[in-house]
Write a protein that binds this DNA or RNA. Structure first.
Lengths: 201, 201
DNA sequence: GTCTATACACAGATAGAC
DNA sequence: GTCTATCTGTGTATAGAC
């Protein structure tokens, strides 16, 4: 809304804050998830940060959004529907390397249950999109006969999302849980043993 | 550790606090989950509460434990292994009536990822026990031929737990999600369509 | 052993100066 | 756009009354 220079500087500053925040939280875990910690990391005061984002919860909502954005560029962009399941598995495996962000995501997901929470719409939309991807992949696999299970794709999509989220919680409690291995085994044993055909990445 | 009267009074007071706390949180949701709110509900000062429990996190750990205890009396006590899956479904359906407690549980589950958190061992133990119940039920069903799927019971138990936790998160975000229906459909479609045989409660 | 009163530490939010 | 100062709320620690 403002002429070039100033506006762009504001956006750039926001980006810088968000990137540094992802960094700090990834490294320090949820302990690094206070306004003050992030402020220190970008050499600003807490008030300076909140000038850009309004409130703490809005700041953290933007952090989540930013991570999704970065993830999407790396993994799922432009992949055909059939491969979205695989892309998701890759994502899962990679995310498992950054416990702090998973903690943040899980914590925010709970808080966002409140319709008034700034992240509420983000999580609703994210869930819808995630399941739509699964649904389409399932449909394609069913129609091509590579998936013998003929259950309602919408329901299966919900289940897959649930398994993914649920395994993350188990993994937070005990990092020795191999999420990707369980997901893969599940696809192969229950869904018709054909997801491995997609493996080429 | 102390002679009768006094000791019992202490225990009784703790029980009273825990019961009231479950009440308040169930009614007011996570907003009622501050030491002050609970203190008000039992007509005590915050310090009075903490005298009995030490810290806030320990208090809330005991609250979780208390709820499990009450749940167990109501549903799973004495049920044969084969029916534990059904008992769990019943529990799921009943819990869905008390959003505040599910929020509390989910939030604590995330915080308990930290091995130093007072609820860490509670959640670890709870997970082990939950999965052990599923595992035995699965084994029985497999051996009696009522479950055609021959995947590793331990892995399947993890998946079922994950679906259950994951669906709760979806439900928190959108209460129109019918957790029990999805769980039931999942058992019937993927696990061999035999869980309904157990339905008699 | 039980609890109140009080003091303290800290986080997030807000107002106003620069 | 950023800081300092301030206010509020919330959890925690301690002293001492009963």
């Amino acid at each position: 809304m403002k002429p070039g220079g100033t506006y762009l500087k504001g956006v750039a500053k926001r980006e810088e804050i968000l990137k540094k925040a992802l960094d700090v939280i990834g490294r320090e875990g949820i302990r690094g998830a206070s306004v003050k910690e992030i402020a220190d990391a970008v050499h600003l005061s807490p008030a300076g940060i909140l000038h850009h984002f309004g409130t703490k919860e809005e700041l953290f909502t933007e952090i989540l959004r930013k991570r999704d954005e970065l993830d999407q560029e790396l993994f799922t962009d432009g992949a055909p529907a059939e491969q979205s399941a695989l892309a998701y598995l890759n994502l899962t495996q990679r995310n498992a390397q950054v416990p702090g962000l998973i903690e943040l995501f899980s914590e925010m997901a709970v808080k966002a249950a409140d319709p008034q929470h700034p992240a509420h719409n983000f999580f609703v939309k994210r869930g819808v999109e995630t399941r739509a991807g699964f649904e389409e992949a399932i449909r394609v696999l069913q129609e091509s006969g590579r998936l013998q299970l003929h259950s309602d794709p919408a329901m299966l999509a919900r289940v897959i999302q649930a398994v993914s989220d649920g395994l993350q919680m188990q993994w937070l409690l005990d990092p020795s849980v191999d999420m990707a291995a369980i997901m893969t085994a599940l696809f192969e044993d229950c869904l018709g043993g054909s997801i491995s055909e997609l493996h080429d990445a």
